[in-house]
């Protein structure tokens, strides 16, 4: 509860800066619109104004600055406009019983969430298995780790279309699987790194202790390495699920997808609907926040049960 005040303070600052930025960002659009409606603008004509700085435009046309806060297609919408759009495409549609309509962000969010979760499970499994291999085999340590690092330097936007083409070549229908693979591609890495660190966290004397008991390798893994890695695992999972969501959205962007939050962002861009972009963006951020919070709760509960709560 202690963190509420600082969080709210930062939020207030962001919203304040956002409101301040709306005026210069939207002044040209606002002036063009006012001029078409017959208002007197200095200087005259959109072409003329392109040469003038936004600050000058605002200073010379103070009466129209406020128009920038109520545009239908703003360059930068106000927080309230984004909020209204979000409500219109979620809660309001639910109240009208149209939650699963193609215009509803709940529908698109659900599509994205499904791929994210599949990608998250796939990536986590690959990450954990890879970490176990790296910790237990010197060969895997020297061969897998460099590739894992290199894999993260390849831009995912370049890989995504290839993954979609290749999966369709082997007869996979739909975009669910390729999106999950793209999302797993981003998600496995933090899990792998965190689990390697966690599995290696027991010190030499802890391993010596088990040696004096003549414990088997499996016993060492189950009774020492695995439980010792749990705090590291949860930290990685929180990073991993956010990465999985980003991966899914990227997977929806360049691939001609028509549903999912990524598709909404792209379509909003193509059809000049900034409000759709911003509301999809916020929906994605809220979704990420919810997922990370759920994992955080799971982490607290698990660590408390294990007696490791701090």
């Amino acid at each position: 509860m202690r963190s509420v005040a600082p969080v709210l303070t930062v939020l207030a600052v962001i919203v304040g800066l956002w409101y301040l930025a709306v005026a210069p960002m939207n002044i040209r659009v606002a002036l063009n619109q006012a001029e078409r409606a017959g208002a007197e603008i200095v200087p005259e004509g959109a072409v003329q104004r392109r040469q003038t700085s936004v600050w000058r435009l605002m200073a010379q046309n103070t009466a129209f600055v406020s128009e920038g806060y109520a545009l239908e297609r703003p360059r930068l919408p106000t927080p309230v406009q984004v909020g209204e759009e979000l409500w219109k495409t979620t809660g309001k549609m639910v109240m009208r019983g149209r939650a699963w309509s193609k215009r509803s962000l709940i529908y698109h969010g659900w599509i994205t969430l499904q791929s994210t979760l599949w990608g998250f499970f796939l990536g986590t499994a690959v990450g954990i298995i890879g970490a176990v291999a790296i910790v237990y085999s010197r060969v895997a340590d020297m061969s897998l780790m460099p590739w894992a690092i290199i894999s993260q330097t390849v831009p995912i936007v370049a890989l995504a279309p290839m993954i979609i083409v290749l999966t369709s070549q082997i007869g996979v229908e739909g975009r669910g699987l390729p999106k999950a693979i793209i999302s797993a591609y981003l998600c496995f890495f933090p899990v792998l790194v965190g689990m390697v660190k966690g599995l290696r966290s027991p010190g030499p004397s802890q391993l010596d202790l088990l040696k004096t008991y003549n414990a088997t390798g499996l016993q060492t893994f189950l009774k020492l390495r695995l439980p010792a890695s749990v705090p590291y695992l949860f930290t990685s999972l929180k990073v991993g699920i956010a990465a999985a969501l980003v991966g899914t959205i990227v997977g929806e962007l360049p691939t001609g997808a028509i549903s999912g939050l990524g598709a909404r962002i792209l379509i909003g861009d193509q059809f000049g609907a900034p409000l759709a972009i911003w509301s999809a963006l916020f929906a994605a951020a809220i979704l990420a926040g919810v997922l990370v919070t759920l994992l955080d709760v799971a982490q607290r509960v698990t660590l408390r049960r294990m007696g490791m709560a701090t």
């Binding site: 010190g203 202790l209 003549n214 016993q219 009774k223 749990v230 007696g307």
Partner: peptide, 23 residues
């Protein structure tokens, strides 16, 4: 050992049980 090195995820009883489980 010099450091007690008890497993933080096991109770005191659980820690003493560790060698017994392994054996």
């Amino acid at each position: 050992f010099q450091a007690a090195g008890l497993y933080p995820w096991r109770t005191i009883g659980g820690n003493i049980r560790l060698p017994l489980e392994i054996m």
